[in-house]
């Protein structure tokens, strides 16, 4: 029963959105609008559920003194700060200046700093990979080294030549491989979607 219901829903919604894209019809448009609104509502609900699960999990970590209590406390305090700022009486919700300040002055800079440290983490990982040996790791690091040198912002004829090498490398070999991977993913997704729509699972093979 479950196998029949989910593919039927997928087929119905998919065909509805596809028909709405092809045919200009107000009633069809309204129906497709309802489907889109339902998807948006489900996504919003899923986001709230994910946040709630995170809070409960970290709360239990703190209560049972397991894992990383300091990290759990930081997560809970951060969530509480945003919730209090956005839900206190008289607040403008997500558009409240206090929420904006927390996001703009704390969350964004802290997140950017953590990502900035990836510079060191990525280099360390690449170095370890090369030192441990393995043909793939060495080729990867050698290619990265060539591209890093080509990206040096040097002026003059040498800089122009290096920039040309970097642009060609990005636009031809790297882009070719990347597009091949994307096409492969798209074909796999199409096959998976078709199997889902027709209710074909591993048990049928």
């Amino acid at each position: 029963m479950r196998r029949a219901t989910i593919p039927a829903l997928v087929i119905a919604v998919g065909l509805l959105l596809f028909a709405d894209l092809l045919v200009v019809n107000p009633a069809l448009g309204d129906l497709a609008g309802v489907a889109v609104a339902a998807v948006i509502a489900v996504a919003a609900g899923a986001a709230i559920a994910t946040g709630t699960t995170l809070a409960v999990r970290r709360g239990l970590d703190l209560w049972r003194r397991r894992g990383d209590p300091v990290g759990a406390l930081a997560v809970l305090l951060g969530m509480a700060a945003v919730l209090v700022a956005g839900l206190r009486p008289g607040s403008a919700g997500a558009a409240d200046p206090a929420v904006g300040w927390i996001v703009a002055a704390l969350i964004a800079p802290i997140g950017a700093t953590l990502f900035g440290l990836l510079f060191l983490a990525t280099l360390s990982a690449a170095r370890r990979s090369a030192i441990r040996g393995g043909r793939e790791g060495l080729v990867l690091v050698a290619a990265a080294l060539v591209l890093v040198v080509a990206l040096l912002p040097i002026g003059g004829p040498l800089g122009t030549a290096l920039s040309g090498v970097a642009s060609w490398t990005l636009s031809v070999p790297i882009a070719g491989v990347f597009r091949g991977i994307l096409i492969g993913i798209a074909i796999t997704a199409a096959i998976l979607a078709t199997r889902t729509m027709f209710g074909i699972g591993p048990a049928d093979e």
């Binding site: 510079f119 280099l123 690449a126 170095r127 370890r128 990979s129 090369a130 030192i131 441990r132 040996g133 393995g134 043909r135 793939e136 790791g137 060495l138 080729v139 690091v141 050698a142 990265a144 080294l145 890093v148 040198v149 990206l151 040096l152 912002p153 040097i154």
Partner: peptide
């Protein structure tokens, strides 16, 4: 940007030297 790229280049180059690239490229992956 140049300093960051040079640090990356030196770091990666030292890894290639430490890993003995010529020797490893010529034999199958362990």
């Amino acid at each position: 940007i140049a300093a960051g790229l040079l640090v990356a280049a030196v770091w990666l180059a030292s890894a290639l030297l430490a890993g003995g690239p010529a020797r490893r490229l010529l034999r199958p992956t362990a």
